[in-house]
């Protein structure tokens, strides 16, 4: 090897590539320093949640009436009591399981149709020209507005609810995937062509991975809308599901269960978006810092 190449090999960043197993405490200290911001966020976040619970507790125990009435709002402890009862109640668990299943089926179908369709629309102009106008007209219709139509379209209630969940997540997924395709750097496509890539390889090796960040944005948004749509559909036409549970609690004057249903929905929604984020980090290792 000649000198310029040696000169070109920088020695400094080698430490980053070959961790020499430093002492544990030094590692821990570094981890602490690197994650300082995150830890801070965690701490403040926890404190803010606790404050929220305290405020809720005070507002309800003193039955505050100030524009809004807290007279009938259940206290956190009452909700907790109904929670401990509910987790031993197979019916409550079934409501949750059914909602999750509807989300899973509806959302998966939306992803399985929306992502490939978006990719193909981004690549083939004719498909774009045919599909886009229809999609643009249907897109602004909220999934809830589809409830009557869905009930007419599908033989069972279950199918129409899944269909509405599907619709809710389908359009964000499609639109974001398509958006990702339009943003693919043409120079990368050129680079691939210069390296002997043909159409199929360019699609697989360039367009698809380049669009992945936007696809995952679509999936995250889609998941959120899926829950919104599902809960609305369950409240209107369901017989089971966590949305139905919440609405039923209101009709049965089970105020603590209303809050329990709401919190369950929030936790499920949060959990499912965390799953998507984790999947995104798994699929896009180059983006994790």
């Amino acid at each position: 090897m000649t000198s310029p190449e040696q000169a070109a090999a920088p020695a400094a960043p080698a430490a980053a590539t070959l961790p020499s197993r430093p002492e544990f405490s030094a590692r821990a200290a570094r981890w602490f320093r690197l994650n300082q911001d995150r830890l801070r966020g965690l701490l403040i976040g926890t404190a803010s949640l606790i404050l929220f619970l305290i405020a809720w507790h005070l507002l309800t125990t003193y039955r505050v009436v100030f524009f809004v009435k807290f007279t009938n709002v259940p206290a956190p402890l009452a909700v907790y009591a109904s929670f401990t009862k509910a987790i031993h109640d197979p019916k409550f668990l079934m409501h949750i399981l059914l909602s999750c299943r509807r989300i899973f089926i509806g959302f998966s179908l939306a992803a399985l149709v929306g992502v490939p369709l978006g990719l193909i629309m981004g690549r083939f102009k004719l498909v774009h020209e045919i599909v886009f106008p229809v999609a643009e007209v249907l897109r602004p219709i909220p999934a809830i507005a589809w409830v009557p139509m869905a009930i007419m379209l599908w033989p069972t209630n279950e199918q129409s609810i899944v269909f509405i969940t599907f619709l809710g997540s389908f359009f964000p997924i499609l639109v974001n995937t398509l958006h990702g395709m339009t943003l693919v750097d043409p120079v990368l496509v050129r680079a691939a062509k210069c390296l002997g890539a043909r159409e199929a390889s360019i699609f697989r090796e360039v367009y698809f991975p380049a669009s992945l960040p936007h696809i995952f944005t679509g999936l995250t948004v889609g998941m959120g809308v899926a829950w919104v749509s599902l809960i609305a559909a369950e409240m209107i036409s369901g017989q089971f599901g966590i949305g139905y549970f919440t609405w039923e609690a209101y009709s049965l004057v089970q105020y603590a269960d209303i809050a329990l249903g709401m919190i369950a929905i929030g936790v499920l929604g949060l959990g499912s978006s965390l799953v998507i984020r984790a999947a995104g980090q798994l699929v896009m290792p180059w983006r994790s810092r």
């Binding site: 120079v187 990368l188 050129r190 680079a191 210069c194 991975p209 380049a210 896009m284």
Partner: peptide
């Protein structure tokens, strides 16, 4: 008539595939 692997190209913007090591 078109790009080919027999003519390698290097771009000013590097244009490495970010998703590949």
């Amino acid at each position: 008539t078109g790009p080919s692997a027999e003519r390698g190209m290097v771009f000013q913007q590097y244009s490495l595939f970010p998703w590949k090591t």
